[in-house]
Simulated assay, not measured.
Amino acid sequence: MNNSSSEEKQPSYVKLAMRNMVQKRLTSLKHFALTTIGLLTVLVGLAYLTR
């Protein structure tokens, strides 16, 4: 009983993150794009170095 009421008072981190992502859509898209480009760069670099 007490546990469910505390969850209602404090939303989960996932809900906060989703709400934040919707409110700051452009920033989230920029960070997602930078992360994707960075990961692809690392993978292509490793593939080139280990060929």
Rank of each mutant, 00 (worst) to 15 (best):
V44D: 01
K30A: 08
M18R: 13
L26R: 10
L49G: 10
E7G: 03
L49D: 04
L39I: 04
V14I: 04
R19C: 07
H31G: 06
Q10L: 14
A47P: 00
A17H: 06
M18Q: 11
R51G: 08
Y13L: 15
M21H: 02
L49C: 06
A47G: 11
S6T: 06
I37P: 00
Q10K: 13
T50K: 14
A33T: 02
K9P: 00
K15Q: 08
V42G: 02
L40C: 07
G45M: 05
P11H: 04
S6R: 15
T50P: 00
P11N: 06
K15Y: 03
K30Q: 11
Y48K: 14
E8V: 13
Y48I: 12
Y13Q: 09
S28D: 05
Y48M: 10
L26C: 07
S12L: 09
Y13G: 12
K9T: 12
R51V: 08
L40W: 00
A47T: 14
N3R: 15
R25D: 02
Y13R: 05
V22T: 13
M1S: 11
S6Y: 05
S4V: 02
N2S: 14
L16R: 15
L49K: 13
E7Y: 13
S28R: 05
L34M: 09
K24Q: 12
H31D: 06
T36R: 00
S6G: 05
R25F: 10
N20W: 13
T27S: 11
L43G: 04
N20A: 12
T35E: 02
S28I: 05
S6W: 07
T36F: 01
G38L: 01
V22S: 10
S12C: 09
L43S: 04
L46M: 14
L49R: 12
A33C: 03
K24W: 08
R19L: 12
E8K: 10
S4W: 15
M1C: 11
L40K: 00
M18E: 11
L29G: 03
T41Q: 01
T50Q: 10
K24E: 13
T27E: 12
V42H: 01
K24M: 06
S4R: 09
L26A: 12
L43P: 01
E8Y: 09
S4G: 03
L34K: 00
T50C: 06
S5Y: 05
T35S: 08
N3Y: 04
N2A: 15
T35V: 03
L16H: 06
L40R: 00
